[in-house]
Design a protein around this nucleic acid. Structure first.
Lengths: 343, 343
DNA sequence: AATATTTACGCAATCGATTGTGTAAATAAA
DNA sequence: TTTATTTACACAATCGATTGCGTAAATATT
C-alpha cells in the first residue's frame, strides 16, 4: 500500500491565500514585517488546513533541530530515570525536545547511537557512558564541530568537556567509615568496572577509609563485576565462602547490595545487620523495600539532570561566559537504615 | 561564542575529488552505476575528511527519517523498559533508530511530544497512553497521513489502529480466582484509572471471578488511584480501616501492591499471607524482593515490544498484506509466590 | 512639498542529499 | 561493421522552511 503523503506545507497555505510562502513563514512566527491582518488570516488558514511545520526542513535550513540527545546505559535504573526527568524538565521549559536512547552498556551500541544523534544533528548531547567503553573517538564529530557535550555520572576524563558528577570518593569514604564506626572489622567491597572513573573513586574512597582507621585493605575482599543483582549474589557466594570472610560489605550500587543480601538471607549463620553489615549506593526505591532496609548513599539525580541540561542549553545559546570545560560536583548523603545498624 | 560549523558535506568530498556530488552520494551507498574504483576513492576520501551524512537533509528529500518514536508514560517502570528493549531490538536490527519520550502521565506532555514526533517526521509511532488522556485528536496528523501508529498496553479503542495488549480480563480473573481458591473470602481491589481500558478490564475480570464463585462484589472494597506505591499505602489504610475489611487484595500493579503490603506490615494484627492475601500485576523485580514474595501476573513485555516494532516496520515498508487494524493479544501467567499462599 | 522612514510583502538563493534524465564512452550483439 | 546495450558519470530539480535583499506604498519628518 502506498503512503500517499499529502502533507500540508507553507506553500499550500500560501497558495490558498494568494500570498507568498515567505509571508506565511513569517506570519506564523510573528515576524515584525508582516501586517496584523495578514498574520491573523495566515494563522487561521494554517489551522484550518491542518498545517504542521516540518521540523526537518526547518532544521536543515537553520542548522538547528531544537532537540537534545541523551544517551544512557539503561533507562530502567532509578538514578538514570531521575536524571532524565531533570534533563527533560529544563529542556522542555526551554522548548527543547529530548530524545533518549540506551546503550545497554554495549560499546557498539553506544557508538551507533552517538552517530545517529550526530547524523540527526541534535543540538546538544548528554551522555552517561556504557560500562564497556574505553575508547572515545565516537564523540569526535561533536567535539570538532563544537556541539555541546556533557557527561553525567559515568564520565571520562579523557575528553575535555563538561561533566556532572558526585563526589564518589567522599561518598564511599563516608559509607565505609560508617561501617567501621558501627564496629564491623572486615569490610568487603562490591566494585564496578574500573575504567569507569566513578567506580574507581568508590573503590579508592573505600580503601582510604580503611587505611584511615588502621585497617589493611585486602584484595581478596573485593569483588569486581557489572553490579547486577545476580553479581551481587555471586559476590556474596564468593566472599562469604572464603576462609577470610568479610563481616560487612560496601556495594557500589543498591542492586548488587540487594543480591548480596538475598544470598546471605538463605544462609542460616548470617543475620543482617547483627553479624553482617551492608551498605549500598544510589538510594534506589528497592533500598527501602528490602528487609532489613538498606543503608545507602543518596545523590541528587534530578538536580544533576537539570544542571546537565542547563549547561547544554547555555552552550547552545552561545551565552556562556566561559568556554573552559567545567566539572560540577554534587554532594551526597549517607542514609542510615537498618542494614548497617550493628550497634 | 560562535558555533563555527564546518560540517563536511558530499559537496566537499566531491570537490576534493573533482567529481559530482551525485557520484559521491551514489558511491557511498553502492549504487550500481558507479565504477568500482570511483567507489573506493570516494569512500576513502569521505572517511579521511570525516564526512558524516546529514540525516536531516536526507530525510527531507526522501521523506523518511529511519526513526520510530516511542511515547510512554514513564520509562522507569520495569514493564515499560522491557517493552522498549523489545522495540529497540527489532528496530535496530532493521536499521531504525528509536527515540523515546515520556509523558509522565500528563495529557499536555503527551500532546506536545506527539506533535514533536510528527514535526520531526518519525516514520512510525508506538504509544502507551498517559493515565489522563481522554481525547485523541493529537494523533490525527499521523492517522490522516497514514503514518504507522501502534498502541501498546495502554491503548484506546476510540482510534482504529493496531494494538498490542494482554488479556487483562483473563489475567485479573485468574488472579482473583486464585485468591478465592486459597480460601480468602473478602477480596478487595486496587484499581487504576478507568478511562484506561486495561484497568477497566482488570476490574471487570476481578468482578467476574467473584461472581463466578458466588461472591457479591462490593464497591467499598475497591480503591481507585494512580497505583503508585503511596496510593497502595493509602488504599490499605482506607480498606483495612473500614468496618468491612478485606482479607485479601488484588492490586492492578505490583507497585501499589508493595505499598499495600508495607502499610499492612506495620499493623500488628496482620500477617501476609496468613490472614491477608496479596496479588499484584506485572512481575516487576520488586515483586520477588519484597518479603513475603509477591504473587503476581507476568506478561511478556519484551515480546510485546518486539511485536509492536514489527507491526510498525511492516507498515512502513508497505509490505503489509492487510490494512485492517489488528489487535494482538498476549497471554499472561499467574506466578504464585508466598503473598497469597494461605493454604 | 520634498525627502526620509516605516510598513508589508515577494523574489530567489540556501541548507545537504537524492534522483530522473541525459550523454559520452566502452563493450557486446547482430 | 553497424546497431544495441551496458557502464560511468554529471546536470538540475526537488524536499520545505528560512532569510537577505529588493520594492512599492503608506506614513512621518523637516
Amino acid at each position: 500500500m502506498k503512503n500517499r503523503n499529502k502533507n500540508i506545507t507553507i506553500y499550500d497555505v500560501a497558495h490558498a491565500l494568494s500570498v507568498s510562502a515567505t509571508t506565511v513563514s513569517r506570519a506564523l512566527k510573528d515576524h515584525h514585517s508582516i501586517g496584523k491582518d495578514t498574520k491573523k488570516k495566515v494563522k487561521k488558514m494554517a489551522l484550518a488546513m491542518g498545517y504542521e511545520p516540518n521540523a526537518i526542513a526547518s532544521g536543515l535550513r537553520k542548522k538547528k533541530t531544537h532537540t537534545i540527545g541523551v544517551l544512557v546505559s539503561q533507562i530502567n535504573r532509578p538514578f538514570i530515570s531521575s536524571l532524565i526527568s531533570g534533563i527533560e524538565e529544563v529542556a522542555n521549559k526551554n522548548k527543547y525536545h529530548v530524545f533518549i536512547t540506551q546503550s545497554h552498556d554495549s560499546y557498539e551500541k553506544e557508538v551507533e547511537d552517538i552517530k545517529a544523534f550526530y547524523n540527526n544533528r541534535v543540538d546538544g548531547l548528554i551522555v552517561s557512558l556504557a560500562m564497556e567503553t574505553k575508547k572515545y573517538d565516537h564523540f569526535l564529530p561533536f567535539l570538532k564541530n563544537n556541539y555541546p557535550l556533557v557527561f553525567a555520572d559515568r564520565v571520562t576524563y579523557e575528553i575535555e568537556t563538561d561533566k556532572i558528577v558526585v563526589d564518589n570518593f567522599e561518598a564511599a569514604f563516608k559509607a565505609t567509615s560508617h561501617l567501621i564506626q558501627q564496629g564491623y572489622k572486615r569490610i568487603g567491597h562490591l566494585a564496578g568496572a574500573q575504567q569507569r572513573h566513578m567506580y574507581k573513586k568508590r573503590l579508592d574512597g573505600y580503601t582510604a577509609a580503611l587505611i584511615k582507621h588502621g585497617i589493611q585493605p585486602e584484595e581478596s575482599l573485593i569483588y569486581y563485576s557489572n553490579l547486577s543483582q545476580q553479581e551481587g549474589w555471586n559476590g556474596a557466594k564468593l566472599l562469604l565462602g572464603q576462609t577470610v570472610k568479610p563481616d560487612a560489605v560496601f556495594a557500589a550500587n543498591d542492586t548488587s547490595a540487594v543480591g548480596f543480601m538475598q544470598y546471605a538471607e538463605q544462609l542460616t549463620n548470617y543475620s543482617i545487620p547483627h553479624n553482617l553489615g551492608v551498605v549500598g549506593f544510589n538510594n534506589d526505591p528497592i533500598s527501602s523495600i528490602v528487609r532489613p532496609k538498606l543503608t545507602t548513599i543518596n545523590h541528587p539525580a534530578m538536580e544533576m539532570g537539570k544542571k546537565a541540561a542547563e549547561l547544554v542549553l547555555t552552550k547552545i545559546s552561545g551565552n556562556s561566559y566561559t568556554t573552559i570545560p567545567q566539572t560540577i560536583t554534587f554532594n551526597t548523603d549517607l542514609i542510615i537504615r537498618e542494614s548497617s545498624m550493628k550497634k
